[in-house]
């Protein structure tokens, strides 16, 4: 009975998740094949079979300025996206959590609905809004022209990538924040008010510290996919908005240097795990210290 329940899904996930992931780890230490792809993990010679592995792929990442800059830029994009989402989502989640029950679900549903639209469609929709013929770019360029600057393109720029990622990932921030804020006990705020705390003080000393778990959950949900994003920069970024995900795609589909692509993917995943783990640890320490 137990085996019958556990083994089918477990076997499937071992075959199509665990094994491929381990192969990826192994291939990040392999040499590239002669015609792209991978060369064999081991060689057979007079002494028998032995492994033929290398740290070159990782060394190449750490010694090349280009790739370090790329990682730094991806971290920057993901960090800025997370911060912007937080700034935009916090007031929204607070308003939803404190509104009357009957509007609350509707307001929440309205955050979720666009999120269920295919993200390529949402990116395409943004392309129209940011496009040179749309009102936004026209007004901006008219203003720039008026102060004597050259017109700019909103589309295909780092700015477009940032707007695109905030647009795509915003609901990921709103939902965990709302789930947290909704549980707060309003009596705490009343008590603070009675004891003479102003609204600013009530927010920073009660609401915000209590909401840190929600902030952390939302930030992780935004940061991880944002760091690995490749479709958004691919479509909205032009040549100046390239992120690490685009380079991984190129290594696998165009350059066909799989070991190097694998090493980049492993680094990306580790970076995502380290940053979110660090943030979670910091938040726990802060909560523990009773700030």
């Amino acid at each position: 009975m137990r085996r019958l329940l556990v083994w089918p899904p477990q076997a499937y996930l071992i075959a199509f998740f665990l094994v491929p992931t381990l192969i990826m780890v192994a291939s990040s230490f392999a040499w590239p094949g002669e015609e792209g792809g991978l060369s064999s993990f081991w060689v057979r010679d007079a002494q028998g079979i032995h492994f033929d592995l290398t740290f070159d792929n990782y060394r190449d990442i750490f010694t090349s300025r280009l790739f370090l800059v790329l990682f730094a830029r991806s971290l920057g994009y993901a960090g800025l996206t997370t911060a912007s989402c937080l700034l935009a989502a916090y007031p929204l989640a607070l308003v939803i959590a404190r509104s009357a029950g009957k509007y609350r679900n509707l307001l929440l549903l309205m955050v979720i609905v666009p999120f269920w639209t295919n993200f390529l469609i949402r990116i395409y929709a943004l392309m129209i809004i940011l496009g040179p013929q749309a009102a936004l770019a026209r007004i901006l360029n008219a203003l720039l022209d008026w102060v004597g600057l050259t017109p700019v393109s909103l589309l295909f720029s780092p700015f477009a990538v940032l707007v695109g990622m905030v647009y795509i990932y915003l609901p990921f921030m709103v939902l965990p924040l709302y789930a947290n804020l909704e549980k707060h006990d309003p009596d705490l705020l009343d008590a603070a008010r009675d004891l003479g705390a102003g609204s600013w003080q009530r927010f920073w000393r009660i609401t915000f510290p209590l909401s840190l778990p929600g902030v952390m959950a939302g930030s992780a949900l935004v940061f991880i996919p944002a760091l690995g994003a490749f479709a958004v920069p691919d479509i909205l970024g032009g040549t100046r908005g390239i992120m690490i995900g685009n380079v991984i795609k190129m290594q696998f589909l165009e350059a066909r240097d799989w070991p190097f692509g694998s090493a980049l993917s492993i680094m990306l995943t580790l970076l995502a795990l380290v940053v979110t783990g660090l943030a979670a640890w910091l938040a726990r320490r802060k909560v523990g210290a009773g700030v």
Partner: peptide, 8 residues
């Protein structure tokens, strides 16, 4: 990240 799924 999705991309890790894809490439692996």
């Amino acid at each position: 990240p999705d991309i890790l799924w894809g490439v692996s």
